[in-house]
Amino acid sequence: MANKTLGTRQKLVFRLDPAQAKPRNPVAVLAKRGGAGSHQKNAATLRQAQKQALKKLPIDTEQD
Rank of each mutant, 00 (worst) to 15 (best):
L16C: 00
T5S: 02
T61W: 06
P18R: 12
I59N: 01
L6S: 07
A43P: 02
L46P: 01
L12G: 00
R47G: 04
K41H: 13
A53R: 13
A36W: 07
D64S: 11
L16Y: 12
D17W: 09
L46Y: 03
L54V: 11
A31T: 02
R15S: 02
D17N: 06
I59H: 10
K4H: 05
H39V: 15
P18S: 12
R9E: 15
R47M: 10
D64V: 09
L6F: 13
A21Y: 02
D64M: 04
Q52C: 03
A49K: 13
N3G: 03
V13S: 06
A31C: 05
V27S: 04
Q40G: 13
L6H: 05
Q63V: 14
G7E: 12
G37W: 08
L46W: 08
A31K: 13
P26Y: 02
L12T: 07
R24D: 10
D60W: 09
D64F: 03
A21G: 01
L57C: 02
Q48H: 08
K4I: 14
T61A: 14
Q10F: 00
L16A: 03
N25L: 08
A36F: 11
A36Q: 09
D60V: 11
N25Q: 09
A53M: 06
I59Y: 14
A2V: 12
V13R: 03
K56M: 11
I59K: 14
N3P: 02
P18F: 00
G7Q: 07
L57Y: 06
F14Q: 04
M1Q: 05
N3Y: 04
A31P: 01
P23G: 00
A49H: 10
A43C: 06
R9N: 15
S38Q: 09
L12H: 04
Q40P: 14
D64L: 11
I59S: 02
L6K: 07
